[in-house]
Design a protein around this nucleic acid. Sequence first.
DNA 1: ATGCGGACCTGTTAGC
DNA 2: TGCTAACAGGTCCGCA
Length: 271
Amino acid sequence: MPELPEVETSRLGLTPHVVGRTVEKAIVRQKRLRQTVSAGVTGTLPGLRLDALRRRAKYLLFDTAKGTLIVHLGMSGSLRIVQRDEPPMAHDHVDIVLDSGRAMRFRDPRRFGCFLWTRGDALQHKLLSHLGPEPLSGDFSGERLYALSRKRRTAVKNFIMDGRIVVGVGNIYASEALFRAGIDPRRQAGRISRARYDKLAAAIVDVLGAAIVQGGTSLRDFTGQDGQPGYFQQKLNVYGRADGPCVVCKAPLRQQVIGQRSSFFCTNCQK
DNA sequence: ATGCGGACCTGTTAGC
DNA sequence: TGCTAACAGGTCCGCA
């Protein structure tokens, strides 16, 4: 569920509830996530004020005076604001109890997420230090994609999903951006022109930006029901539409596994 | 250095 | 209807 737009939407929704609040305690019901939940989450975080909530790639960074809580939602994770006495459901692994009487609750059935504590600069953490530019920042461009792709033989879809190249392009938006740019996802990264990379970079920016706008309207209220996906689904041109008609040429869309991930494209419009 | 496959988990859906 | 297999929005690691 969480691709970059949803992580950013989560950040925006959580910010007014957590920034400026002090953590009263942390409850860890399941510490075995993709990595074991850091001891600092229960040992150090309580008593500290959350000064800011940042996002880097799909990581959420909760800054305090003594360090940063790094959270990743993995495939199935979510963060919600609940009343502190609301009984936990299955897979509600962590509560960060705040001095507002509420708690930030982490739910993650598949446990691919992470809850890590780090002292010092979170951006230098091992999981973050290698990451490429944010797609919605000025550091990202077709020029960069072109330059880094020379002599790369991997499929262009794999290439744009590589966080060292650019962050935040997940499996849905990789397919969507390549469709918008008219590029066959199987094409070798190193054999695509500068002009086409300019178009692809613009498509990535457009599709992620549009999805953030959509997410912002449906997940605004984090105290309500769980945020269902689907808000952006009607905007998807190819993802999940195997055999459906291409919105441009009506030809049946194709589904093919590329780099172990399902990919969707139009063999007529994407070359 | 690059690229590939496997790993981590559970829930839902497709198919027989 | 019920069982099993395949698949799911992410990434990290290790091997060739």
